[in-house]
Amino acid sequence: MSVPNAPHAATPSSDAHAERSHSGAGLRTFLFVFGGLLLLTACSYLTFRLAADAPAIRWPLMMAISCVKALLVISFFMHLIWETRWKYVLTIPASIMSLLLIALLIPDIGLRSRKYSEERLRNAARPRVGNAGDEHGPAPHRPRPAVDPPR
């Protein structure tokens, strides 16, 4: 009942060989990757602190740092850098599908407020409070006597 590729089915020598080819340089590599990830997290936090007043710079920069971190995790921690080409079969179609989903949202949801402006909102029709019209008849637009008092 042995499955050809199960780890325990392999002989010790081929196991050692597979390990070497599988996880590259071993622990040292992982330690470097871990250090790099910590450094990048610190960079991300520093970006947030230093570019606090410039969201246009802060956000893309932090996302770029995250992309590098993700690449490190995928390549080394998830061993994809040492895997054969099956990795593309399983990851690329899924990524394309999710990108398509997002692209489909943009024309409607993403652009829903592209014609908003401060001025438009200010001049938009709005509901009035309570039934103030009862006091002053149908048009409650009595000017506020700001300077000259009525009495």
Binding site: A94, S95, I102, L105, I106, I109, G110, R114
Partner: peptide, 13 residues
């Protein structure tokens, strides 16, 4: 990716 992408679309929209 669907969730995150939707978040990005909603946020920047």
């Amino acid at each position: 990716a669907g969730l995150i992408g939707t978040y990005i679309v909603l946020r920047f929209g």
